[in-house]
Design a binder for these strands. Structure first.
Length: 422
RNA sequence: GGAGGCGUCGCAUAGUGGACUAGUGCAGCGGUCUUGAAAACCGCCAGGCGGGGCGACUCGUCUCGUGGGUUCGAAUCCCACCGCCUCCGCCA
């Protein structure tokens, strides 16, 4: 009848667990109380409707078998009942809409072990590789321009700020990077995918992107379609309303362009291709049983680190604080690459364990050992993106302005070094 | 973009206003028989939500693509939308 956001049974049995989760995220627990109220109102309305409806069905059957005065009398009563049933149904519909709205306001329950707080309260899990600041240190845009790899000015001319052209070796570099990532995914058992990037509202809503971050998303009003900010949306929607065999996790790796308004980031990262409206990404996505989701999360993180190692990029892994989780995530690990020109770490990958949050909304289920359908868990993670070019160029730049290519990339590029063009 | 056809339980089909409490076949699962298998026979075999019981269960309700409408009563009649198929047009 409806897709649930928060498990309502859990809400009834243990509302404090959800309140506590809201606290960790730094959000009001009022939403939880509102949800409980809406749930009660909905159940009451439902019970009244069902009782009336049962009576209506019973009497309705007698109408067809009766005649004469009896029939006239029955018809009089069933007509009354019909009005009452319609009224009760309207109340249910209204209560259901209110319940749904209340559900949408509550994000996923934070996993155990996640630290409270916001953007700056993360935990560093580990740091890998030696960081260095080359002398001289050119930033990725300076390098990209001299290599003939990135053209921001003409991107702006054609499409506006935060758009760019990858040109020449830049175009080849991205293609090589994404090919290598997709190759790694296929080698480790992922099914490669090229998904749609325009999706329906249900797909956006089901993955949790129409909540607080709706203003981040491009929308085509005429067709009521959304441009995805990540192929996670299309991959999660792929098995919606299906019952899967999840004896083993189902893993997909998608290539897609991604589109983001970056509405809340005026003035941030305006230089180069760190934060742009359109980029390309290889995204991993897993469907699995909820009890193995934590383990699967570590695997996705491992695959991300494998790619970073292949790119020979120094990085650290952070365990994101509760306040910095997306609404669908229970836990999130980011890999942040060392960016020499900024002398700090910047996010290159992000992997989220969405537990049953998305699958419940999208009605993705599996059969348990007793053959009963249960809600699955979903996870996602980044394997490579356009932004990786920043870390590759800057970390592997040479004093003469050339860029050494990491070994793993060389076969895909057919060369070992990128040389300045002018 | 235009015209027509079609959406029923995993698959295939029946059902055109009241016994539909959605029938049947296939596939699947369990059993009987058998040394074992096949065949035959018997049983089970869509999900959501709500109520009752510790529980195997049980009662009610919703769902025949989705949402409205007509009616005392809708799988069935009407409208809109979504999807699929065929043909035409256009196009990488």
């Amino acid at each position: 009848m409806s897709c649930l956001v928060i498990d309502l049974r859990l809400l009834r049995e243990n509302p404090d667990l959800i309140r506590h989760s809201q606290q960790l995220r730094g959000e009001s627990s009022q939403a939880v109380d509102d949800l409980a109220d809406a749930d009660n109102a909905h159940r009451e309305a439902l019970q009244r409707f069902e009782a009336l409806r049962a009576e209506q069905k019973q009497l309705g059957k007698r109408v067809s078998r009766s005649s004469g005065d009896e029939k006239t009398e029955l018809l009089r009563r069933t007509k009354e009942l019909s009005t009452e049933v319609k009224g009760a149904e309207t109340v249910v519909t209204t209560a259901a809409a209110a319940l749904r709205a209340a559900q949408m306001a509550v994000p996923n329950i934070v996993a155990e072990g996640v630290v409270p707080g916001g953007e700056d309260d993360f935990v560093v899990v580990r740091t890998v590789g030696e960081t260095s600041v080359p002398q001289p240190c050119r930033d990725h845009l300076e390098l990209g321009e001299s290599l003939g790899a990135i053209d921001m000015e003409r991107g702006a001319k054609t499409s506006g700020a935060r758009f760019y052209y990858l040109t020449g070796v830049g175009a080849l570099l991205q293609q090589a990077l994404l090919n290598l990532a997709l190759q790694q995914a296929v080698d480790t058992g992922f099914t490669p995918m090229i998904p749609p990037v325009l999706v329906r509202p249900e797909a956006m809503e089901g993955t949790g992107f129409l909540g607080a971050h709706a203003s981040e998303v491009y929308h085509l009003p005429e067709e009521d379609l959304y441009l995805v900010g990540t192929s996670e949306v299309a991959l999660a929607s792929y098995h919606s309303r299906e019952v899967l065999d999840l004896a083993q996790p189902k893993r997909y790796a998608a290539w897609s362009s991604c589109f983001r308004k970056e509405a809340g980031s005026y003035g941030k990262d305006t230089r180069g291709i760190i934060r742009v409206h359109q980029f390309d990404k290889i995204e991993m996505f897993s469907y699995c049983r909820p009890e193995v989701a934590g383990e699967e999360h570590q695997k996705l993180l491992g695959f991300e680190e494998d790619m970073l190692a292949k790119m020979e990029i120094p990085y650290r892994v952070i365990d994101t604080a509760a306040g910095d989780l997306g609404s669908s995530a229970a836990r999130k690990f980011d890999c942040e690459a060392w960016v020499p020109s900024q002398q700090r770490y910047r996010e290159l990958t992000s992997t989220s364990n969405c537990t049953t949050f998305q699958a419940r909304r999208l009605a993705v289920r599996y059969r348990d050992d007793n053959g009963k359908p249960r809600t699955a868990a979903t996870l996602n993670g980044t394997l490579a993106t356009t932004r990786w070019i920043v870390a590759i160029l800057e970390n592997h730049q040479q004093p003469d302005g050339s860029v050494r290519l990491p070994k793993a990339l060389q076969p895909f590029m057919g060369r070992e070094v990128l040389e300045p063009v002018a």
